[in-house]
């Protein structure tokens, strides 16, 4: 068991994939940046100097402290300054990133599951099922994703009772962004499935009497995963930006669970009065996150599927 694992690691080290990775500075740096950001979001409660959502630890006197400058009343020092309520900006960014990343990953997972299943079904079954699924995809593609997400968010908001809107907002956001991004997955998987389903191994499986569901999941799916991984990475960057945009516009994460977009929205209000750090640091974090994931996605696409370039 152990030797097999070690074997696999040895094999992975020698693979083309790792070779390409070690010879691309852009990929390594992006991976490092993304990894550090994601890790620090996960362990935020351990490394954040304050819990910004625990009112007991806040001191309003600390409000509007500039970065690295002792506060004039309490003489406390904050790495990235504090916002209007005296919350440490560094901590709010860490916690905000958790929400941004959670929404991003969850939305992409949702879009992936939905898109891959519909793509498999459309490609494998064909006929009118295919026609209906792909027509829906076409109609949705007519509209930019962010607009679709906004609309779904608006409709879902109408459905939820007023007192639960804040609690539900995160889930509504995930569904809205997920539904706006499934089309890419479905189209690629359908195309790959159309190619794979006529190959001998699928015919052999069919002759063995495997059912359609088993063939789709056990035989075709593993062979179409490469492009899916690429789209998932690029979608993650898009989802993070979409979430930030919606939250910035005030139709996303609720004030009780501020994401990076919400923090930027708050910070924008203080730009004119000179408290630039409330805006700048969340914005830079968002930029680094989106850019590193984006570059990683571009690199993955080039490595895994040179034809798409």
């Amino acid at each position: 068991m152990f030797s097999k694992l070690a074997d696999n690691i040895q094999r992975a080290k020698k693979s083309d994939f790792m070779y390409a990775f070690r010879h691309s500075p852009v990929a390594m740096i992006s991976f490092l940046v993304a990894f550090i950001l994601i890790l620090s979001a996960i362990i935020a409660p351990l490394i954040a100097p304050h819990n910004p959502f625990d009112p007991a630890t806040l001191n309003l006197m600390n409000g509007f402290s500039a970065p690295m400058v002792p506060n004039q009343y309490t003489s406390e020092v904050f790495l990235l300054g504090t916002d209007d309520q005296g919350r440490d900006v560094f901590s709010t960014i860490l916690y905000g990133m958790r929400i941004s990343l959670f929404v991003g990953f969850a939305a992409v997972t949702f879009a992936m599951v939905l898109g891959v299943s519909l793509g498999l079904i459309a490609g494998y079954v064909g006929g009118w099922v295919d026609a209906i699924i792909m027509r829906i995809a076409d109609v949705q593609l007519t509209f930019p994703g962010i607009l679709v997400a906004m609309l779904i968010f608006g409709i879902a908001k109408g459905f939820t009772p007023i007192d639960q809107r804040d609690e539900m907002a995160i889930w509504v956001l995930i569904i809205a962004i997920g539904l706006s991004e499934w089309v890419q997955f479905a189209r690629v998987v359908r195309g790959a499935t159309l190619v794979e389903k006529n190959k001998e191994y699928v015919q052999a499986a069919r002759l063995n009497g495997r059912r359609s569901g088993g063939i789709m999941l056990g035989h075709i799916l593993p062979n179409v995963l490469g492009p899916v991984l690429v789209i998932a990475t690029i979608s993650l960057a898009l989802a993070i930006i979409a979430e930030a945009t919606l939250s910035f516009l005030g139709v996303g994460a609720p004030p009780t669970q501020p994401s990076l977009g919400t923090l930027i929205r708050i910070g924008q209000g203080y730009l004119f009065s000179g408290e630039w750090w409330i805006l700048l640091f969340p914005a830079l974090t968002l930029l680094m996150l989106a850019l590193s994931v984006n570059l990683l996605g571009d690199w993955l696409r080039d490595v895994l599927n040179p034809k798409l370039r």
């Binding site: 945009t245 910035f248 730009l271 914005a283 930029l287 989106a290």
Partner: peptide
Amino acid sequence: LIGVSLPTFLIGILLIYLFSV
């Protein structure tokens, strides 16, 4: 490349900061 990765609203805020503030 950076322009493509920057979300629209950040570009807007950046321009406001530079040219208005």
